[in-house]
């Protein structure tokens, strides 16, 4: 048990701790958290707030990847959700009322769920490879978002809507609370029911699962829809945070960050066993990396270079070739020691 835990979460946690240490050296007050106006402030709070959208999407992405799939369209769904919500709020006579915001959010969520079902349909019913199926929405989605915003950046001034991205609840940022809620929801939904087992089973061996009576079609619909749900929530948070829907830039590259978080968290892109906890750590690693780049004083725009380095290192570590090489090295070591003993 101990060993399994170590092999899955060990490296992501080490990575996270290393980043913390770097931060601590560059900025001694890194761990300090202050309470101002009953709101918590501090670098760590910034990390959990700014990392919330990536984490939320990464949770959905984890389940999709567990079924051997991938969802490239989440960034586009973010943009659509934001665009829908903002255009409804702007179009209403009373943008500041809670009712308007609730309607806007509900409509945005419903539209996003339909898009998730669409992805699920392409993958589960038409049998199109997931990367290709979701590429369609990735391409067209931003066009749809622009269609909704009519090419404008829709700036909204609606206090209830702003709460999503920059409000506080119980002293914590609302975005963080939402992320934690979705994390708990996903964990309960997949681990307290049999969903997790069935998803992993389909991801590892679809044919054996079929023969055991598992209905993979329904599962695929469920994970793609859930992923779109997560994307929509993240899109609303991002939009609220910027107080504007920008069809071009809301959630740009977030699909890549989310996939990266999943991969860092130790869930294999080949599907199968997944770890939501790993994904959580992975998302924190990414956000801390971004923060580190700031605190260390590297131009923030260079973050992508570091991300590239992380993707490469993580993938190389997970690669079968590397594992085989390690295994060979270990056997040669052990056989050498054995020979040494024999001699």
């Amino acid at each position: 048990m101990n060993r399994i835990f170590a092999s899955r979460l060990f490296w992501p946690v080490v990575m996270l701790l290393a980043l913390f240490i770097v931060n601590l050296i560059a900025f001694p007050g890194f761990f300090s958290i202050e309470l101002k106006n009953e709101h918590l402030f501090g670098s760590l709070i910034d990390i959990v707030r700014n990392g919330a959208p990536t984490l939320i999407i990464a949770i959905g992405m984890t389940l999709v990847i567990a079924t051997r799939g991938i969802d490239l369209s989440v960034g586009a769904i973010c943009a659509i959700a934001g665009a829908v919500a903002c255009s409804i709020i702007l179009g209403s006579p009373d943008p500041g009322s809670v009712g308007t915001v609730v309607v806007a959010i509900v409509v945005a969520m419903v539209i996003s769920l339909v898009l998730g079902v669409w992805n699920g349909f392409l993958v589960a019913v038409l049998g199109i490879q997931p990367i290709i199926a979701t590429l369609i929405l990735m391409t067209a989605g931003r066009g749809v978002a622009m269609l909704i915003t009519e090419g404008q950046i829709l700036t909204v001034n609606s206090p209830p809507f702003k709460v999503l991205g920059s409000g506080f609840l119980f002293g914590l940022p609302v975005a963080t609370v939402i992320a934690v809620a979705i994390f708990v929801l996903a964990a309960l939904l997949t681990r307290r029911t049999a969903l997790g087992l069935l998803i992993e089973s389909v991801g590892i061996n679809p044919e054996a699962s079929r023969q055991a009576g598992v209905r993979s079609r329904g599962l695929l619909f469920a994970v793609y829809t859930f992923c779109a749900f997560c994307a929509a929530v993240a899109g609303l948070i991002l939009t609220s945070n910027q107080t504007a829907a920008d069809a071009n830039n809301t959630g740009l590259f977030i699909e890549l960050d989310a996939i990266l978080a999943v991969v860092i968290g130790g869930t294999s892109l080949m599907g199968g066993r997944y770890s939501l906890l790993g994904t959580l750590v992975g998302a924190l690693v990414i956000q801390t990396l971004v923060t580190t780049v700031y605190t260390v004083g590297i131009p923030p725009i260079a973050t992508m270079v570091f991300k590239a380095a992380v993707v490469t290192v993580v993938c190389l570590l997970q690669s079968p070739t590397t594992n085989a090489a390690f295994a060979r090295w270990r056997t040669s070591l052990s056989s050498r020691t054995r020979k040494g003993v024999a001699a």
Binding site: R192, T193, A194, L195, L197, L198, S201, S209, A212, G213, V214, R215, L219
Partner: peptide, 14 residues
């Protein structure tokens, strides 16, 4: 548990 679970459906975990 797989086949039994598949039969019970995802919601009713054994």
């Amino acid at each position: 548990a797989l086949a039994l679970q598949a039969d019970r459906g995802w919601f009713r975990r054994i």
